[in-house]
Design a protein around this nucleic acid. Structure first.
Lengths: 323, 323
DNA sequence: TTGTATGCGTTATCAC
DNA sequence: GTGATAACGCATACAA
């Protein structure tokens, strides 16, 4: 027989079953040290809670205590690869260890005020979000709603909020340095045409420095079109490994040799890109340890202690046979 | 001057500023039709709320009404590609349209009771989760906590909960049918060695039917090792496009021609795989419209109406030059 | 050591 | 049309 219509068990239900007061249940379940409870009553409470399948009501708890323990991560519109996924997982792990609950929210949620209102309803303790989704007004709203830490992610530091700087320029710079060190002088840099990727591409291009900018959509036809632009080029930074793969496949078709005619550098060190022949030289991003630093940073902000945002990653070049 | 320590504005604050009662504020903000409010007071309330930056407290609301409007999506441990990402985005969009708030939870959250307790704290209206993360006990706990719709995702229907069946066998079957139709008779099927992928691979292999099973790790060295197994093979279903890429790069190195010596079929129709030469024949999954159907299904369950879970995808074969 | 009482922000039932 | 008022589940100051 199913108990379909039964109301979820409350701490009062647990108290009734255990033969104690509701307050005692709360003490036991929260391990409050200041109120020492007999081992016996403690056991009674625990077993009663177990038997009833009692689970705290997070809403009621947050209403009472004024903090939800939630950390909100509205997902970026930019499709993310293994790196970002790994970072999010690490973040979740670290936050869980500190008793926070990490939640990701809306893949394509509207930005600005509407989004901020939706976020604020949950009364999160912290929120980490792509800076482009924030406005001065929306940050104000979030702060008013009691969000202790509003942290941005962005290629450049924001004036609005403390920002985790995802510095794209150093990626481009590293690629340029390597190509130059290989004696390449006639350089080009790929910038994706795709919406979300374009801004990142422009930043990588900025870091790359002097060189021909080639706008490229992720599409063989587009690659065919830009092929003539490479006539006088002997080194290309391809934005990332995926665009590098696109480029290399097109160059191969055209009979242009890599690295003999043109050297190619990718970025992100995708596992899939290791299958390429020649193997792709790439700028790898190292994010290990970042999540822990970010969580420490968040905790400081939540406590009201000022703190400096950590670096999101370090970069290093992996030289393979495409350069 | 910042108002750092100010308590978030409540509906009472709005009422005070607007010069009305707190109940009236609630009526206005919820557009309750039964209590007709003057257009004038309505405007006063709205402007007061605006000025204060008032945002509802989701916790208090869910405490009072007994439903949170939350739909929880504990993410699967299996790394997901563009397809799953798209599905999640669609789902979010559809749910938002119906007034629900979709939230994804913990990338590597523990399964079983511990996870269920964490989920239940949020008192979601519905939860969609990989069936392997559920146990009979944890489903019971969730139901007791008032979760109206506990929906599984799994290759096979579950006895525990209504299940969105991600039928992998038909993918394998389609690949086999195509290879046979091309006159290939000595068939093999790749099964990934990787943890999360292996079960999916075994299901695809089951659907494939007769043929040599080749266990393969996503790694060029592993591909080298299995190369001898392909000596007598003339058609391979490579599990998915990524493994197909691995395989094709290894075959190319060994001087084995595709499709002349061996025909290859991938799956998932990855954009990146279109760069391959020869171009990869693949089993494509179509998920358009699925999210809407799933949301309709969820809504039924939440209303207490029994309903049949929709199919997650349809499959079709895209023939290119690798077969 | 445990119980009583209160209020967090909200919605909803009832008088007015 | 609008305003008191109660209750949702919980944590905690204080009383016992």
């Amino acid at each position: 027989m199913e108990t379909m219509t039964a109301r979820p068990p409350t701490s009062s239900d647990v108290a009734r079953l255990a033969g104690v007061s509701q307050a005692t249940v709360s003490y036991v379940l929260n391990n409050r040290a200041d109120s020492r409870v007999t081992e016996e009553t403690r056991a009674k409470v625990l077993s009663a809670a177990e038997k009833l399948g009692y689970v705290r009501h997070a809403g009621a708890r947050s209403l009472k205590t004024g903090n939800s323990g939630l950390v909100l991560l509205p997902l970026s519109d930019v499709p993310f690869g293994p790196l970002a996924t790994r970072f999010i997982e690490d973040l979740d792990h670290e936050l869980t260890a500190l008793g926070y609950t990490m939640i990701t929210y809306g893949a394509r949620q509207a930005r600005g005020m509407a989004a901020a209102r939706a976020w604020a309803e949950l009364r999160p303790a912290a929120i980490i979000v792509d800076t482009v989704k924030l406005t001065s007004a929306s940050v104000g709203l979030l702060r008013k709603a009691g969000v202790k830490a509003v942290v941005g992610i962005s290629p450049k530091p924001s004036t609005l909020v403390p920002t985790l700087v995802a510095d794209q320029t150093e990626i481009g710079a590293l690629a340029a340095r390597h190509l130059r060190s290989q004696g390449r002088r006639k350089l080009a840099v790929i910038v994706p045409r795709e919406d979300g990727l374009r801004d990142i591409g422009l930043d990588r291009r900025e870091g790359f420095g002097a060189g021909l900018q080639i706008d490229l959509a992720f599409d063989p036809a587009s690659a065919q079109e830009v092929l003539p632009l490479l006539r006088d080029i002997d080194g290309v930074f391809a934005y990332n490994d995926e665009y590098a793969m696109l480029l290399m496949s097109t160059l191969a078709d055209a009979g242009i040799r890599v690295p003999d005619d043109i050297a190619i550098v990718g970025a992100d060190d995708l596992p899939l890109a290791r299958l390429l022949r020649p193997q792709l030289t790439t700028v790898a991003l190292d994010i290990s340890g970042t999540a822990a630093a970010v969580v420490t940073f968040l905790a400081s902000l939540i406590d009201g202690t000022p703190a400096t945002p950590p670096r999101l990653w370090t970069t290093h070049l992996i030289e393979r046979s495409s350069t």
